[in-house]
């Protein structure tokens, strides 16, 4: 479904992604871990088409199409969804209005009819249950004054409504209390399917004990330096990243 080859990207003149290779197949869940500043969110934003990130080399193929040529809205309509690490507050735009516009843009692209207000409401009610989100939040401006946890639930709720093929969850667990983490993770699990792939970015094994990944990758200084299965996450939890750094220095004495 997704194939990233030798991806390099710059932000504000600095090279942050320095040759990422990653292949994700339909139905798989990949976890990406890595220290602060290693480039996890940068990768997520580059995949979503954020224009302030400049891709300097490499390619990304999504469903046989060149993802890097598409504008952000086209990627979303093609089925890429990013759950933001820091969801944006947008005063003056109601969540309902926004989400209906988004859903209809996506549906139109997929050759489906636009949903009317009634059907939309029914859909929204069903999906809110998934993350036990309070319906009152829908009438408020997007994320405005939402608590950290409410914002993260809202991201997963939007994902449920928009039904993407590839979901990238950037630290969806941060800012959630233990109960909320369980609820959101249960919601995400309910959205796992053979047709959908997920990239789950996290710092904590805790999330991955709920959302059990098929693969775990370690992103370090703009490169994936280690990949494994779910046991790798446990190992990282136990030993931290220093251990990986040491290993790297052994194999690659130059360049780091």
């Amino acid at each position: 479904m997704l194939e990233i080859k030798n991806l390099h990207a710059k932000v504000a003149g600095a090279e942050i992604l320095r040759g990422i290779d990653l292949a994700v197949n339909t139905g798989e869940v990949h976890a990406i871990m890595g220290p602060n500043g290693s480039g996890k969110s940068t990768l997520a934003h580059v995949l979503s088409g954020r224009e302030s990130y400049e891709v300097t080399a490499g390619e990304v193929i999504f469903e046989k199409k060149n993802l890097l040529e598409m504008r952000p809205e086209e990627r979303a309509r093609e089925g890429v969804f990013l759950a933001f690490q820091y969801p944006v507050e947008i005063p003056g735009v109601s969540t309902t209005y926004f989400l209906k516009a988004a859903l209809n843009a996506v549906r139109k692209h997929r050759g489906l009819e636009e949903v009317d207000a009634m059907d939309f409401l029914a859909l929204v009610k069903e999906k809110m249950k998934l993350v036990e989100m309070d319906q009152g939040l829908l009438n408020r401006p997007i994320n405005e004054g939402f608590s950290g946890g409410e914002k993260k639930r809202n991201e997963i709720f939007q994902m449920a409504v928009l039904d993407p093929k590839l979901a990238i969850l950037d630290e969806t667990d941060s800012g959630l209390d233990i109960d909320a983490l369980r609820i959101v993770a249960t919601g995400v699990n309910a959205l796992r399917s053979k047709e959908r792939a997920m990239i789950v970015i996290t710092h904590y094994q805790r999330l991955l004990s709920y959302i059990v990944p098929d693969y775990v990758h370690v992103l370090f200084d703009g490169r994936i330096v280690k990949s494994g299965d779910k046991r790798l996450a446990l190992e990282l939890e136990e030993k931290g990243y220093a251990w990986i750094e040491e290993q790297l220095q052994k194999t690659q004495p130059v360049g780091f």
């Binding site: 504008r71 809205e73 979303a76 944006v88 947008i90 926004f98 516009a101 988004a102």
Partner: peptide, 17 residues
């Protein structure tokens, strides 16, 4: 970017804001 990342076109996003 947030609006566009949900499928809303750039013009519509600007107008909405």
């Amino acid at each position: 970017f947030y609006l566009r990342s949900r499928g809303i076109g750039v013009e519509a996003a600007r107008n909405l804001l």
